[in-house]
């Protein structure tokens, strides 16, 4: 499956390479557009020294890890939000008669690597944050773990949104509210939000495990909401649970697929 994914991505990348100017412009566009988010944080810190109790380096760390997870998931599987187009155009039928998971097919269909611009931007912010912070060697191991878990959590959100399209057919915005909305929510320290919301993204939709909970461990901070310490280590478990739920929903969605007329 991974091999097929990579082969298909490569085939589509070669196809996109026939339009190098368009590719370059879109990559730069993605880089600049997400760079504006950082500008917002910068503006905030020209007026204050802390945001929700966190200093600039720490906020950048939380921003960078959330964005890197999101950008990776978006690069690899963001195409899944096009499923309603495929269902309406009837091209989803075609994917179902091929010997490859339709999830992989949708993710790779017309894959354009320009989303790499966002990955680079997020990685740059993270490097900047780590340079300002003094993360102890004993805690740095959590960083790759949280980014990998976060990527899985966002991918699972896309798959859940995709599965919902089988029933709703015409509401990709509902799914986007959770994926893009979730990513935006996690760009700031959760301490700027209310306790209800934080409990929601901890115990219901586990977005807090993308960067907040493991981030508290890396930064060695008290939980401002006083949630249990061990939650900080649960990111991989949250990612696995989300992936399982998403996979089941996706399978159920396909079994309820109705196709179009003719």
């Amino acid at each position: 499956m991974v091999r097929t994914y990579l082969l298909l991505v490569w085939a589509w990348t070669r196809a996109a390479a026939q339009y190098p100017v368009s590719f370059a412009l879109m990559t730069v566009g993605g880089f600049v557009a997400s760079g504006l988010d950082v500008a917002v944080i910068w503006v905030i810190f020209t007026n204050t020294t802390s945001l929700g109790g966190f200093d600039l380096g720490e906020v950048m760390f939380l921003y960078g890890t959330a964005c890197l997870s999101f950008a990776m998931a978006d690069l690899l599987f963001g195409n899944v939000d096009r499923i309603s187009q495929h269902i309406r155009a009837g091209t989803f039928d075609t994917m179902l008669i091929r010997p490859v998971s339709p999830f992989v097919q949708i993710a790779t269909e017309r894959f354009v690597p320009h989303r790499i611009g966002k990955v680079i931007q997020a990685a740059a912010v993270l490097v900047f944050a780590l340079a300002r912070l003094d993360v102890s060697d004993g805690r740095a191991w959590m960083i790759p773990v949280m980014i990998a878990s976060g990527t899985v959590i966002f991918t699972a959100l896309w798959a859940l949104g995709g599965a919902a399209q089988f029933l709703l057919t015409d509401a990709p915005e509902v799914a986007n509210a959770f994926t893009y909305g979730g990513a935006t929510l996690m760009q700031y320290p959760l301490s700027v939000y209310g306790g209800e919301l934080v409990r929601g993204v901890t115990y219901v939709l586990p977005l807090a495990f993308v960067n907040w909970q493991p981030g508290l461990y890396v930064l060695d901070r008290e939980d401002p909401f006083g949630l249990p310490y061990w939650l900080r280590f649960l990111s991989p478990a949250a990612a696995a649970a989300m992936a399982l739920v998403a996979a089941l929903a996706w399978r159920t969605g396909i079994r309820h697929y109705r196709s179009t007329g003719s």
Binding site: T4, L8, A11, A15, R98, P99, Q105
Partner: peptide
């Protein structure tokens, strides 16, 4: 021919 090549990859 590119479509055929993609199909070749999909069907291995």
């Amino acid at each position: 021919k590119d479509s055929f090549e993609l199909i070749r990859l999909l069907y291995k």
